[in-house]
Structures are given as C-alpha cells and as structure tokens.
Write a protein that binds this DNA or RNA. Structure first.
Lengths: 292, 292
DNA sequence: AGAACATGATTCCCGAAAGGTATCACTCGA
DNA sequence: TCGAGTGATACCTTTCGGGAATCATGTTCT
C-alpha cells in the first residue's frame, strides 16, 4: 500500500511537472522525491509519469490517478474536523427528555437556542414522565432531562431552568372562581382535591400536601401528569394545584386562580448524569448557565 | 498529519475494542499499536478512545472519526483501480475520426464492439475528410482514424478494417443502366465522369484514374466527399465510381451497377500514430486484429 | 485481604525506511 | 563539442516503527 507522503509527492510533481521544483516546494531535495514517486508507481502498479531526461509528462493513467490523489488528500485534510467539532460538543446528538407541561413554555425556546448556537447538534426528543426521565438518565438512554426533583444527587446534577407559581385549577362553574382574592388552604376544606402520585409525581404531590397541610380536604385521585389533572378538573371531578403554565394547555372548562403563596414556586430543572461522556452536554450546560 | 497505518491501527482497535486482539489482527505486538493510536490522537487533536485499565470505549469524537477513517481507507483501496484500468486501456477516451461513407457500414459495428468489450472507454467522434483526419493524427488531436491511404508510413501505422468493391453510380434514367453486364472503362467513353480531388481525396482519385486508364472520358468535377459525388450523380451531372456502400446512403435517383474488376477493392483503414501514448489505442488495436 | 491475572502504557533496543550529499547518465542548445 | 539542465543512482546519516521486557493499575478468585 502507498503512503500519504507518496501521494503528496506525486501531486506536487504532477503540478510542477519538474522534480526539482516539486522537491523545493515540499522542502526536500530531489533524490528522495524521485524515489517516493517510484515507490508509488510500484505500489499502484502503473507508470504515472513519462520522464524523459528533458521533460516530465503525466501518462493517461497518471492523469486519472491525479484526480483520485487529490480527492484523497482533500479528505485527509478534513477528516479530523468532524471529530474535533464533536469533541468540543459543537456537533453530535443530545437525547433530551421532557414532560408535556415543561414543554409548554420551556422546550421551544430551549430548542431554538440549541439550533442557533450549536447548529450541528441534533436533539432527539423523548417525552416521558419525570420518573421515567430519571431512569433514562441513569441508564444512559438520555443525556439531559427537563424534569423536577427528586433525584439522586450523587449520580445526577441539575440546574433550575424555570420557576413559576403554583395556582389553583377549578371547574369554570365552581363557586370559588367568584372569590376575588388568592385562595388559601381553608378555601379547599370542603373540596375534592385531585392530587398526584406520591412516587411518580412526587414533586407536585409534595407541593400539594404542603399547601393543604392542616386543612380539611379530600384527595380523590392520584395521577402522574399535570395534563391529566387539568382534564379531570375540566370534567368536574374536583379542584387541583398545578403550575401556572398549565393555563397554556388551553383546556376548556377550567379556570385558574392565584393561591396564597405557600413557600417557593414550582421549579423546572435540567438534570444530567454527573459522568456523562457526551461532549454536547458540556456545551449545552455552558449555554444554560451563560445567561440565566 | 496522520498516516494511513495509523488509520488502520485505529480502525482495528475501534472494531476489537481491545489493543491486544487488534494488535494480533494486524500481525504486530501491542506496544507499537498503542503508540500509533496515541500519535493519531495527537495528530487529530482529539481523544478517540476512553481507556480504562479494564476496557476500551470509543469516545463520541472517536465514533465520528471512525466513519471518516473507514471512508478514507476504502478510497485508498480503490484509488489505484481506475489508474490501472486506464493503463491497460480498459478505461479512458478514444478520439476517433471517420468519414461519412466509412460510417455507413463500419462505424456502427465498431462502436458497438468498443462499448461491449471496453465499456469504460468513451469514444469521441470527429467527422472529417480523410486528409483532415491524417492531420489530426499527426497533431495528436485524434487517436484513431477510419480513413483511406495515402499517409506517411513513417509516422502512421494502419490496418485494413473493411474491403468492398468499387461500383458505378449512374443517374436512374441513364442508358447504361439498361446493360445487363459489368460495365467497363469503354462504356464510360462518352460520359461525363465526376471524380475526386487529387489531393484531398487521393485514394478515390487514384482508383478512378486507374479504372478509366486508356479510355475516352471527360472529368467534369473534382470533389472531396463520396456523398457529394452521389448527390451530383443524382442531379444528372454525370456518372461516377463509388464504393459499394454508397448504395446505403439512400440517395434517390441514383442506380448502382457492377463494374469489370479493375484490380483490388476499396479498402478502409484504421490508422493511428506510431507513438501514440494512449493505452486505449493499444486495446482497440488488439480488438481489431483479434477477429479480422 | 491478598495473590494471580488482565490490560494498556512505558522503556529500551534494533532494523528498516526516509532524507541528504555527491555523482552519474543523458539530452539539448550554442 | 561542450556546458547547462534534469532525473536516477550510490552511499551515508537520521528518523521512525516494531519487538521484548517491564510497569501500573484494576479485577477476580480464593
């Protein structure tokens, strides 16, 4: 097999049609250049130059080979580019988990920023509930998740990407919608409250429990997804606490009301595996912490 | 810049994910293989493998580079093929000169044989009168000519590719068409004979002169092309001697008659420059002498 | 816990290959 | 016929790649 040095030697001679000048261009002397070309000819099995003591001409085969050689060398030049871009996280794929509700206000702008700042990065989207996203991160099926606590902080790391208040979701014809002040836990005393799965939707479960702590209430349903909760409210099955962005789901028959603030707002986290090897993740994290 | 050996080393390790086995596959020992991969990583500027003392894994960048490396090596494998085919005349271009009349019976089958036996050869056709073809051969504008003598045998070489009888071309209403025997020179005694340019169509000029030698006749026109001759006959401007294939020109108003054989038949030659460097020419010549 | 094993990296040595200098062989032009 | 120009060759030096031995480290089995 021939070597790349032999190819560059050949191309130089083919362009100069003069061994001396070609050698000068390659910063070497003429004899080793002649030998390299001879070796290449032996390796390919074809005479590439017709060399008279007076002039050098490409043979037909040499002309054909010149094209191949140039293509090959061009490919060599650019061979490392993609690898370097991938190494710096500027190219590659990001497997991103998200929940239906997180998507409403956060996913779109996030994807737009990625495609602006890292145009060679492909984002593969996986819609999953939070717990399934955490599993995905731990099993290496996802690189980044837009989800909510809790998660194992030894293995996973995170950053808050959005905060929003919790609010009450009421059927449109519910008496509480008439009140002109933030609702309190006491207002829910007589209500049937739709709440969340303590395991699969632990975050909203906690928030709901905390808000209602000490008041009378009945919890009738425990579901996983905010969307489901809103749909149940619309169906008149009770009232619920949801993140404010649930307004944007546009489910008819549901009215949202401010509540008397019960501690910190709802947080959406970007979560990743502490020792993910994906370089794109580094870049995306840097992008996230950059502004905000 | 990296070397092809480094690429093959990298691909082997990437496929085995084990330096020892990869080294075995490459018929070498493990230490130099490790070094080659390290060098490649330095040359590309990217870490290609994540190597634990227990296992070897491709990095994201390594996976990207693996694709490039495979493409490059595949190209190297096939780089010489085209050059070798060109060298053996199995690929390339043949610039072929021909005359309108030679084309009728000879050119079609010839082109068909070339595209059957040398499918990678492109034939570029140049229709020229014989003398222009000879010039083309001498100036290196043509590789092969389908033409007729004379030519300079020091510089050009040839081979007969077709023989056919000379015959008489008469206006359809001419009295001689009534005769039921081969025509002789004497039959032309009273005729106006259309003949050929002594310089540019020397071959037919010679044949005509030789046939008519010693008889009475009047030569009224001297033209270069057989086709022109036949058109003049059709126009009633006289009679002429033409190769039999001129029948196939399909010019109306012309009748062809056998003549009393005056020596050898009309020959069509394939002519080439003695020191043409085009390898396709070698193959085509071999093809021509192969069967006939 | 400790020993044996597995595996990639490192070190040192040797031989092959590449580059440099001097020279040869040949052609062309004066 | 001689000198200039050009590619090939001979020979030497340097560089580079491969091999054997060894190291460092992590895993596994007793």
């Amino acid at each position: 097999m021939f070597s790349l040095d032999q190819l560059t030697a050949f191309v130089a001679v083919a362009e100069e049609l003069h061994f001396g000048r070609a050698a000068e261009r390659l910063n070497m002397t003429q004899p080793p250049l002649s030998r390299q070309v001879q070796k290449l000819e032996r390796a390919v099995g074809v005479q590439l130059f017709e060399r008279d003591n007076r002039r050098v001409v490409l043979t037909e085969a040499g002309q054909a080979f010149l094209g191949e050689a140039r293509r090959l060398l061009a490919l060599v030049e650019t061979a490392g580019d993609l690898a370097r871009r991938v190494d710096q996280g500027a190219a590659g794929t990001l497997r991103l988990g998200f929940t239906a509700v997180s998507a409403i206000r956060t996913l779109g702008p996030f994807l737009r920023r990625v495609s602006d700042e890292l145009p060679e990065v492909d984002v593969i989207l996986h819609e999953r509930v939070t717990s399934a996203q955490i599993d995905g991160l731990l099993h290496g099926e996802l690189d980044l998740a837009l989800a909510r606590p809790p998660y194992d902080p030894h293995l996973l790391d995170s950053q808050v990407v959005a905060r929003e208040p919790l609010c009450a979701a009421l059927p449109a014809d519910h008496p509480l919608t008439a009140l002109d002040r933030p609702l309190t836990a006491a207002d829910f005393a007589a209500e049937e409250v739709i709440s969340y799965d303590p395991v699969r939707a632990a975050y909203f479960h906690e928030l709901t429990i905390r808000f209602l702590a000490g008041s009378q209430h009945r919890i009738t349903q425990r579901v996983q997804q905010v969307l489901t909760v809103v749909l149940l409210v619309a169906a008149g099955r009770g009232v619920a606490l949801v993140p404010e962005s649930a307004r944007d789901l546009g489910v008819p028959g549901v009215t949202f009301r401010e509540i008397a603030l019960a501690g910190e707002p709802v947080e959406l986290h970007a979560i990743w595996h502490r020792d993910s090897a994906n370089p794109v993740l580094r870049r995306v994290r840097a992008m996230l912490s950059e502004h905000q």
